[in-house]
Amino acid sequence: MTNLLSIKNLRTEFDTRNGLLPAVADVSIELARGQVLGLVGESGSGKSVTGFSILGLVDLPGRIASGSVIFDGQELVGCDQESLRKLRGKRIAMIFQDPMMTLNPVLTVETQMVETVLAHEAVSKAVARSRAVEVLGKVGIASPSERIGQYPHQFSGGMRQRVAIAIAMLHRPDLIIADEPTTALDVTVQGQILYEMQQLVSNSGTALIWITHDLAVVAGLADHIAVMYAGRIVEYGTAEAVLNDPRHPYTRGLLDSVPTTTTPGMRLRQIPGATPSITELGASCAFAARCNYVQTACTQMPEMSSLGAHQVRCWHPLMPGHVTKHSEVSR
């Protein structure tokens, strides 16, 4: 299967008072048309910066220091801004966690959606408006033909997010990067949005990168999962393999932290310690200070290595069927 998106050894840095901060380091991802990738990790792990880097939306003092982002045969790293503008919204769309990063508060939803269509397609305003109304209905906006004439402040937070999602879906793009877009939505609406996304992927072959910290969401949505920690991908594989048989201790810890996996009457399992500051990372494995299986080799950062259905960045990956003992996570 030909890849729509191929990221190789991506590194994105930010210049800070404490030196260069590698928010994304050595990230490699491949994604085919019609596939869904769940990009999972804690806050600050580099998930959102990875999404911004794909679209060339990293502003100073940040920059893509090295690596390659090839979209449908076109190299995007170093690409001129005009070429990127033609791709954004039309062939690659991004849904932000905050809908007001998409919506202009002084323009009606109709103006914003119609102009989005007209910016990339030579169609009449009537056709553009009709498409906008149709997509608003698909994301659960009641009476879309009337509400399209309203301003963002006349919508609730959850409704604004649905409008932002609708704008991303207007052109049936080749790739959608969704940065935790359903975090502010209730469970019922979240399910509706996920269903519409699945339909879009299935019917039009759109590829989807779903950035989240919620493993329950990607469990029912993603084909593949990439787990990020401290700017690096530490485990990558099919959703079934990663969720049912994780090989990296961090992935195992994330799964053990889910309340539904804890035996009734026992304390909630947790990963000891806290995520290290990226500015203070040394040469060792970033997870070493929190890992129950740390050994001498962990003083050096491991490379990604293939292990069955997984790629794992670990010197001592867990064995198949490994079950974490409660004593191991509550030391």
Rank of each mutant, 00 (worst) to 15 (best):
Q154S: 11
D59E: 15
C291M: 10
R290D: 01
T275H: 01
V312Q: 02
A288E: 11
Q192P: 00
S305M: 13
G67A: 09
L215R: 02
S66D: 14
P173W: 01
G149K: 13
V294Y: 03
L60N: 12
I278A: 12
Q192C: 02
G34W: 07
C291H: 04
S66P: 00
A178I: 07
G56I: 08
T261G: 08
Q300D: 15
I70M: 12
G149N: 13
V218Y: 02
T324V: 13
P320E: 11
N18T: 12
F52D: 00
S6V: 06
M94V: 11
R252I: 02
L4V: 08
E134F: 06
Q112R: 09
T299H: 11
T188K: 08
G44Q: 01
M169L: 15
C291I: 07
G220A: 11
A283D: 14
V24F: 03
G56F: 09
S284F: 01
G282K: 09
I95C: 07
T296D: 15
C298D: 08
L268M: 14
L281V: 04
V218C: 06
C291P: 03
L20P: 00
I7N: 03
F287K: 04
L57H: 08
Y293V: 01
A32R: 15
Q198A: 15
D72E: 13
E110A: 14
F71M: 07
S45N: 11
E196P: 05
T16Q: 10
L255S: 05
P246L: 14
V139T: 07
S204Y: 15
T188R: 11
G62C: 05
A126M: 09
S143N: 13
Q270D: 06
S53T: 05
A93G: 05
G321C: 14
L87I: 15
Y293A: 11
Q150W: 12
G149Y: 08
L254E: 04
G157R: 12
P259K: 03
G137T: 10
G158E: 06
V36N: 03
K125T: 07
V69L: 06
R129V: 05
A309P: 08
S124Q: 11
L103E: 01
G231R: 03
V294T: 15
G51E: 04
C285S: 07
A126H: 12
V135Q: 00
V139F: 09
D72A: 15
V242Y: 00
G46Q: 06
D214Q: 10
Q74G: 02
T183S: 15
W210R: 00
G205I: 04
G41S: 08
L87E: 00
T116E: 09
S305H: 11
D98I: 04
M169D: 04
L21E: 06
F155E: 02
T2R: 15
A297P: 03
L118A: 07
V123F: 12
N18F: 12
E240H: 13
A216F: 01
G89N: 06
